[in-house]
């Protein structure tokens, strides 16, 4: 694959970086990333991944754009109200960079469809807004051995970690089972500072770019905690849990669970 003249200009600031270079840029152009959610985290992450020239972006979101999204979900505009988020995201990203193919999925991920949908992507970026999806995505990535960038936000706080199945802890190693429904309020119930997901989503995109390039240090085995209110960044080490139900020595989760049902049984 040779660069066109336009591509040489577009990616010039990458190409002159020794850690990226022409070879790294070509890698990015041949890579694919699957984003779970085109919301607060998915929007800034996808925006930068598209700008960076990641060749294919899959985006799953079954919501339509609402006025209350526009304070932080920067791929969508006032004109997109009522329009599916996955399509609105696609239009914005392809306008930014025609090198990028955006594949929209306007469906909710379930234990039935997730494996098929994500299996051909190189890296998964979780920016979902609910625990059932987060656990489903974690388990699917562990079972498929897909690298996963995890990000989550609440009010002024954010958390990020990079999960490399088989080579570091997964989300369940730290949070073994989901919290009981209703125990953790959602952003809708508790609010979120609009710029917060920008910080966390872009950290996720940074991790994904390094992963695709095979360069730099990753947040493997580390949970980065960010507090926008006090402007604190802190890292907590997390380890593989030998008793982890999905990636431990004797895993009890061998197929995917749709966590809503799971909760009704257990809580």
């Amino acid at each position: 694959m040779d660069f066109t003249e336009e591509q040489i200009k577009r990616y010039s600031r990458h190409i002159i970086l020794p850690e990226v270079g022409g070879r790294g840029q070509k890698k990015l152009l041949k890579s694919s990333v699957f984003l779970v959610g085109a919301g607060g985290l998915g929007c800034p992450a996808a925006f930068y991944l598209a700008a960076a020239g990641v060749g294919k972006l899959g985006i799953a979101d079954n919501d339509d754009v609402d006025h209350s999204n526009l304070q932080r979900q920067i791929l969508h505009s006032s004109k997109d109200i009522g329009y599916p988020k996955a399509l609105s995201a696609k239009a914005t990203l392809e306008a930014l960079n025609p090198d990028v193919e955006v594949v929209p999925y306007m469906q909710r991920l379930t234990s039935e469809n997730i494996m098929d949908i994500i299996k051909d992507y190189d890296v998964i970026l979780d920016g979902s807004d609910n625990f059932p999806t987060r656990y489903l995505v974690n388990d699917a990535c562990v079972l498929l051995k897909k690298p996963l960038s995890h990000g989550s936000i609440f009010r002024f706080e954010g958390q990020v970690t990079t999960i490399l199945p088989g080579d570091g802890p997964c989300y369940r190693c730290l949070f073994e089972t989901p919290p009981p429904p209703g125990m953790v309020p959602s952003c809708q119930e508790a609010g979120v500072l609009g710029v917060l997901p920008g910080v966390i989503g872009v950290i996720q995109a940074t991790e994904v770019v390094k992963l695709l390039l095979g360069k730099g240090q990753l947040l493997k085995g580390q949970l980065l905690l960010y507090n926008a209110f006090t402007m604190d960044f802190k890292k907590v080490k997390i380890r593989r849990n030998p008793q982890c139900p999905v990636c431990g020595e004797n895993p009890t989760i061998k197929e995917l669970v749709d966590y809503q049902e799971f909760c009704q049984v257990h809580f």
Binding site: L41, D129, R134, G151, F154, Q159, L174, P179, V184, V192
Partner: peptide, 10 residues
Amino acid sequence: LEIVTFVGGG
């Protein structure tokens, strides 16, 4: 000890 709270929003 490290105590980490669940954060789930996106």
